[in-house]
């Protein structure tokens, strides 16, 4: 099992957001997590990636057999956890190239590999850029600075391709994307998908799931997974909305 989350409770500033969540993900699987706004989907992603301020008050996140609750974000990343951010931040003054090379070499150092040569790195950049259809020059641009909404999301997928994670979490990657950009993103994901990795796709709409077909669909509500099923569940949610979930699970 790649990821096993047991009875997870997460609080932000003393307020409990995730209230006893269980989830297991195996290699080669794609899991979709859906649900209305404010139910803790993004909090879950933050907890898995180790964001500060998201306090695990109870439960365990087990990744590749180890409890990672106390791991630093970079250790998790170097162990193969990647998140495509819902709102990728702009980092003025840090060039995309420098950033990516630093990240790649950090991973290589972690794996006790020698740093990548400049030539190799550039070659890798070019091939991965093609994959996600980034045509612009990244070399002279700062991380996400001046990128359009679509470009930012493509850039996330590009970074995913560069870092080759084992567990990729796509947090609302479809938000703010037009259909063409959405297709590009989905195509990237599908090409990267293998037997050796797994994806957690967090989304509000089923639209993205037309292109990234999940093996499992989970519905999150009020800090818990309240319903799980196959890809049919997503269609059901699409046609019926979330109201019935709310009615069924509101106390």
């Amino acid at each position: 099992m790649l990821l096993n989350i047991k009875n997870l409770h997460v609080s932000i500033q003393g307020k409990e957001i995730i209230k006893g969540l269980n989830l297991s993900v195996n290699k080669g699987e794609i899991h979709a997590i859906m649900g209305p706004n404010g139910t803790g989907k993004s909090t879950l992603a933050a907890a898995i990636t180790g964001r500060e301020g998201y306090e695990i008050t109870k439960g365990e996140i087990i990744y590749k057999g180890q409890v990672i609750n106390d791991w630093s974000p970079e250790k998790r990343a170097n162990e193969g956890v990647f998140m495509s951010f819902q709102y990728p931040i702009e980092i003025p003054g840090v060039s995309m190239t420098n950033f990516m090379r630093t990240a790649l070499n950090a991973q290589r150092e972690y794996k006790k590999l020698p740093p990548i040569s400049a030539g190799e790195f550039l070659k890798k950049m070019e091939s991965k850029k093609k994959l996600v259809e980034i045509h612009s020059k990244l070399t002279n641009r700062s991380v996400n600075e001046g990128f359009s909404g679509g470009e930012k999301k493509k850039n996330e997928i590009f970074q995913m391709a560069m870092l080759e994670p084992e567990l990729a979490i796509l947090d609302e990657t479809d938000s703010g994307l037009d259909i063409d950009a959405l297709k590009v993103v989905a195509k990237g994901v599908n090409q990267l998908k293998s037997k050796e990795n797994a994806f957690i796709v967090i989304t509000h709409y089923q639209r993205l799931l037309d292109y990234i077909v999940p093996d499992f669909v989970h519905v999150m509500y009020n800090g818990k997974i309240v319903k799980s099923g196959g890809k049919g569940l997503a269609l059901e949610l699409e046609s019926q909305g979330y109201e019935w979930i709310k009615e069924q699970f509101d106390d």
Binding site: E52, E74, A77, F85, F99, A103, A106, Q107, L163
Partner: peptide, 9 residues
């Protein structure tokens, strides 16, 4: 955090 998520210390 963004950078650390990418594995940078």
């Amino acid at each position: 955090f963004y950078m650390r998520q990418r594995g940078i210390s």
